[in-house]
Design a protein around this nucleic acid. Sequence first.
DNA 1: ATTGAAATTGCGCGTTG
DNA 2: CAACGCGCAATTTCAAT
Lengths: 136, 136
Amino acid sequence: MLLVEDGRRSYDDIARRVSLSAPAVKRRIDRLRADGSIRGFSAVIDPEAFGWRTEALVELFYAPGTQLSVVAASLAKHPQVVEAWSVTGDADAIARVRTTDNADLERLIMDLQQDGQVIRTRSQVIMSALIARPGD
Amino acid sequence: MLLVEDGRRSYDDIARRVSLSAPAVKRRIDRLRADGSIRGFSAVIDPEAFGWRTEALVELFYAPGTQLSVVAASLAKHPQVVEAWSVTGDADAIARVRTTDNADLERLIMDLQQDGQVIRTRSQVIMSALIARPGD
DNA sequence: ATTGAAATTGCGCGTTG
DNA sequence: CAACGCGCAATTTCAAT
């Protein structure tokens, strides 16, 4: 969708590109928002400009029988956790985290381990972005 | 920033919330965009609504001496690759991918391997999202 | 503060099932 | 004929100068 490329495009602009009228476009978008196809709109930020200088993917290994909901709750406490997924394979979950520096990253990982059921973590720190498509 | 929560908020709306005038807000946002702190705006989509039913993190292992630029170019060819990072640790890079189904995922991985320098991959398919903060 | 652009709403029309 | 989605035009809100 064109709105993924630029979430502030005007209805008129979109309308011209798809050969419709502006109101028609608005109503379609309203519908997409209502039924959840479009979750919302967001500004995409440069993390460095906000002091987040290190980013990492942290694989999390939980104690047997740990509930997903408590995992999620534990992760939600830490604003450094940008995204986290429950995954198949070796690890139980993977968190994408953003910290000010390596020390902060270390502290976060310690926190997560103390927080409860984390047995082990394995981190892969991001050196550079190869691909970044917004809106995901 | 409030614009991360809702990228289509009006200047007036923001101005009221932060006790400033609308023009002042606009100037600030213009400055943030100019200096790169705000990269842009985007609609956040429900992948399922667009037929993307499987998501995975794919660790990529490249042949020794492979250039990052060719890695990036190879990944960029595939629209299923949503994000990709060069990382420390075991793997050389990690790609977040979105496919219609498992067969499509398998095909994508084969493609990436044929495409050149990928020696090995290891995939972790995402079962559910635990945390999702937009705008990142 | 003013001027112009964009968003929003009501209404009638054509198409479809 | 009922439901739906469109375009037009009028109104209101917003943006830019």
